[in-house]
């Protein structure tokens, strides 16, 4: 997908910056809003070229809905995996079975691949060691399946179905 128009990218940057400002001040006083908008416009003008490639297309309702659904899904996966690692730490026999496996991804977008790698790293038990094209090299604390297909089923597929809609 090519780059969106400059105006769309600029507006997207300003909106994101302004929302961060709203969260940081947590105040709806007109003075705060004015100065926040002013600074969003200035900082947006300086940074929109590196901040986004797709601009307002990121706010497509389907993408936003999947992004919102992704948050609880991801948090749940993270908590379960955290408990799993905690169990391995506390178990007297230390039941680990580590190794570096390879996964394939169907994502092509750079931001999507970054998000997938970050999600994998944040889920305990797996760390992304390197990404080469569509190949992910992942250190897995409990290797259930060493083949590329099997590892992809366990690690990347669950996230991909969300990220595909959000980023592709």
């Amino acid at each position: 997908m090519g780059e969106a128009s400059k105006i769309s990218r600029y507006l997207y940057t300003v909106i994101v910056l302004f929302v961060i400002w709203l969260f940081l001040t947590s105040n709806l006083d007109p003075q705060e809003l004015t100065i926040g908008l002013l600074f969003s416009l200035i900082v947006g003008a300086l940074t929109y070229e590196v901040f986004t490639e797709r601009g307002l297309a990121n706010f497509h309702p389907r993408r936003v809905a999947y992004a919102i659904l992704y948050i609880p899904y991801f948090l749940w996966a993270m908590i379960m995996a955290n408990l799993d690692v905690a169990y391995r730490v506390l178990h007297p026999k230390r039941p680990i079975n580590p190794g570096i496996v390879e996964c394939k991804t169907v994502l092509t977008n750079n931001v999507g691949k970054l998000t997938l790698a970050n999600s994998i790293t944040l889920t305990p038990g797996t760390i992304t060691l390197d990404v080469k094209g569509d190949r992910y090299f992942i250190h897995w604390i409990d290797v259930k399946d060493a083949s590329v297909e099997g590892a992809s089923d366990h690690i990347t597929r669950p996230f991909e179905k969300f990220l595909k809609v959000i980023f592709e």
Partner: peptide, 21 residues
């Protein structure tokens, strides 16, 4: 986990992850 795990990679697993949650 940092104390119990055998090598640097498994230590990273416990250290970075549990620290996140």
């Amino acid at each position: 986990g940092l104390i119990r795990m055998p090598d640097v990679y498994n230590r990273m697993q416990t250290a970075t992850k549990s620290a996140t949650l």
